[in-house]
């Protein structure tokens, strides 16, 4: 495992820690999109089906279980926790995420990694992850003020995929030497979706101002 990959995984993990910290300490999920969180549950469940069929390492198994467990926990807090669910910004979380699911599924049927149930679902999870942040970005744009934890959460989530891009470049030259269209293009799209957010996040950080996205 190279340093980009490890940094990417740790950034991903940290983003989840930040979000859980916000939910558990402030008892609030204001500014967080339940729809994006639902999409992540679906992404992890469909991608990590190979937990039953393939073994790579203890690290790999542990991280997969952590990602599935924490995404379900976040979903549970936002949907069912007596206090937390009342802070959910339901009216602002208006993105039609079912369209994303349907679109990604059709794409995965047309352009799968391989023609089998698990491979189509794996491809689906890659496509869906690329666009899963959209409901969250739309919600942020509609929010008047974005609290620090929410801003940091989204930043870390974007940084994770950007680091994976470096990991893929590194692996291409040192190890795999194969073009991997599906993850590469999806990863590029996924990272590009954050470009706008990154810009305003860094600006607000440099000017020591509150983060705000223009409508």
């Amino acid at each position: 495992m190279n340093v980009f990959r490890l940094a990417g995984d740790m950034t991903h993990l940290l983003s989840i820690v930040v979000l859980l910290l916000k939910i558990r300490t402030t008892k609030s999920c204001a500014g967080i999109s339940l729809k994006t969180q639902e999409l992540y549950v679906l992404v992890f469940l469909t991608r990590y089906l190979d937990l039953f069929t393939r073994y790579f390492s203890v690290y790999n198994v542990l991280m997969k279980l952590i990602f599935i467990g924490t995404s379900v926990a976040i979903f549970w807090y936002m949907r069912y926790h007596k206090v937390v669910k009342q802070t959910y910004s339901k009216d602002l979380d208006s993105f039609r995420h079912y369209h994303l699911i349907l679109g990604c599924f059709l794409m995965a049927l047309l352009i799968p990694f391989d023609f089998s149930v698990t491979e189509v679902l794996w491809t689906f999870s890659i496509y869906l992850e690329a666009v899963a942040i959209l409901p969250q970005l739309v919600l942020l744009q509609k929010s008047r003020n974005i609290d620090n934890l929410t801003g940091n959460y989204v930043f870390l989530l974007g940084a994770y995929r950007a680091l994976y891009l470096l990991n893929w470049i590194y692996r291409f030259f040192t190890e795999i030497h194969k073009i991997r269209w599906i993850p590469w293009i999806s990863g590029l799209v996924q990272t590009a979706l954050y470009a706008d957010f990154f810009y305003y996040y860094i600006q607000s950080w440099r000017k020591h101002e509150e983060l705000k996205l223009p409508a």
Binding site: F56, M63, D114, N167, E175, I176, P183
Partner: peptide, 10 residues
């Protein structure tokens, strides 16, 4: 195999 080391990523 077709899947190779691609799938060791998260």
């Amino acid at each position: 195999p077709k899947t190779g080391s691609v799938k060791d990523e998260l």
